[in-house]
Design a protein around this nucleic acid. Sequence first.
DNA 1: CGTAGGACTGACTGAACGTTCAGTCAATAG
DNA 2: CTATTGACTGAACGTTCAGTCAGTCCTACG
Lengths: 216, 216
Amino acid sequence: MRSDAPTAAPPPQGDARERLVAAATDLFGRHGVRGTTVKMVAEQAGVSPALVIHHFGSKEGLRAACDRRLAEQLRAMKTSAMADSPALYIPRASAGMDDSRPLLRYLARVLVDRSPEVDALVDEIVDDAVVYTQQAEDAGWIVPSADRRARVVVLTLWSLGALVLHEQLDRLLGVDLLDEGGDILPYLQTSVEIFTDGLMTPEAAALLTAPEKGSS
Amino acid sequence: MRSDAPTAAPPPQGDARERLVAAATDLFGRHGVRGTTVKMVAEQAGVSPALVIHHFGSKEGLRAACDRRLAEQLRAMKTSAMADSPALYIPRASAGMDDSRPLLRYLARVLVDRSPEVDALVDEIVDDAVVYTQQAEDAGWIVPSADRRARVVVLTLWSLGALVLHEQLDRLLGVDLLDEGGDILPYLQTSVEIFTDGLMTPEAAALLTAPEKGSS
DNA sequence: CGTAGGACTGACTGAACGTTCAGTCAATAG
DNA sequence: CTATTGACTGAACGTTCAGTCAGTCCTACG
């Protein structure tokens, strides 16, 4: 064979099992699980579709394997990041890891098309963020909250939401959260500005939390 | 099985065309476009699959019709809401409209599986939010920003991101953005707290915007 | 009345999909 | 050597799906 590369896939390496999970993560992330066929995955991994079933039992089994690898790798990169704020978790976490693009793209997809593994992973992220936020609060970097966990949940989901909508963010702001070499400063600076200066004046906040009674 | 009501669909009303678009919006939002068959849509609308093609040419044509209706209805409900903050746009907008659940669920899905119509709709939302934010700033409700548009984009995407991840938000905080009678106060209060009190102390912000030079 | 046209359907088709299956090949063990 | 096992494949199978087609029903209009 003379080194055929039909897609823009990296040259296959590792054993077939690893290659399949990597290809599936990439393709699932790009086209969604339903939009990806086992044939596509097999081709990108350089094997036959039948081998996918041989190793993982079914397409769903392959997805489960991707979920496990996602959880594993995300756990590995988590400690280094997140120390600051859960809202900046993703851009900071990804910066610490090579080749995290397909992984994060897969995460973005699978956050919507949920699975038990991903739900558990989100729980973990929130739990960790609670701890780190507590520490940051003790250190005087973060202001206290009326409901610490609720705030972490909201911030985490805003951050993950921005990841899920990374295509829109790229379109509107020119910031690609999945482009490792890319410039995410506009997003970062804007986030930090909101988190330091705040957004609303006290009067406006009063209007919102105690709005007019009854409907319009 | 007698009197089969396979799904919890409302009794069909209106002409077939309207019923089809409504059914498609509902099912596309619930299972994604790819996870919905034209047969499912036809059944929920009480017609035959062939009629879907007759009216819309293709499944993609049906989706385009859903996009058009989404844009139309969202335009109708927009003026009443958003006056406060783009970050609270969705929960406030939906409050002003009956039966907005399927529509917003469809929006949440289609924000990820993009289409030209949806991209244009997002642009519109951002443009409108810029205007309203400007007014709120002039009125003294919102603090100024170094980059007004960038801030609006980030806030809008956080808000839409929370909508896209509404299942996770419901799971983690017990707040269902798509449940019209539901209690979204925990989400609202937390958001307002962040937007008024801020999140980070000035020292922490300084560390983030001017981080260590060079990579690790 | 007749006929033209749109709404609508049941039966069908070709393609694509996940999965099965029989079997090849290479490596390892006895 | 034979036996066994696991990775791996080509060819097929059964199913599902979007889309086609011929034709029926209903309504409007001459």
